[in-house]
């Protein structure tokens, strides 16, 4: 699939995360990196060995999302990508956080392991005392 616009990406990512709900296993991978392809970054010279550290202008960020299906399940694989322009970063990530928060429902709502750890602690102290 080609590169999506930011809004399309959010819609598709929402579907992708929604599809995970109720399932007993599965993963979603979200990746981000600098888009350096076809961006006219100057070639390194002896004076400027690492031109990418100070690009002449801010570069866009490439965001990818996939469910990581491979092998026999390759047909179920979903791959999404979008490009975020530098000026749109704050807005994009605010929306991104909302979409992720809505979609990642299987995470623990609250820490319920307090009692368990207490019990463990007692055990260890007993061992230390003996």
């Amino acid at each position: 699939m080609g590169v999506l616009s930011n809004d399309e990406f959010f819609a598709k990512l929402g579907e992708l995360l929604e599809g995970c709900k109720g399932k007993s296993r599965g993963s979603i991978f979200l990746t981000q990196k600098r888009l350096s392809y076809e961006q006219d970054i100057p070639e390194p010279t002896s004076e400027n060995v690492l031109p990418d550290l100070h690009p002449p202008r801010p570069l866009p960020v490439l965001i990818r999302a996939t469910n990581g299906k491979a092998g026999d399940k390759r047909k179920e694989r979903v791959k999404l990508s979008t490009i975020v322009e530098p000026h749109a970063i704050p807005e994009f990530f605010t929306k991104y956080a909302d979409v992720c928060k809505m979609g990642m429902a299987a995470l623990k709502p609250r820490d319920r392991s307090k009692r368990k750890t207490k019990g463990k602690k007692k055990k260890t102290t007993l061992v230390l005392a003996s």
Partner: peptide, 22 residues
């Protein structure tokens, strides 16, 4: 923890600044 998701994604936005060269 679900409570951390929002904050972590926001911090991804903060980390995008050096990524973009800002």
């Amino acid at each position: 923890k679900a409570a951390e998701v929002s904050r972590l994604i926001q911090s991804l936005g903060k980390l995008s600044r050096p990524m973009a060269g800002l």
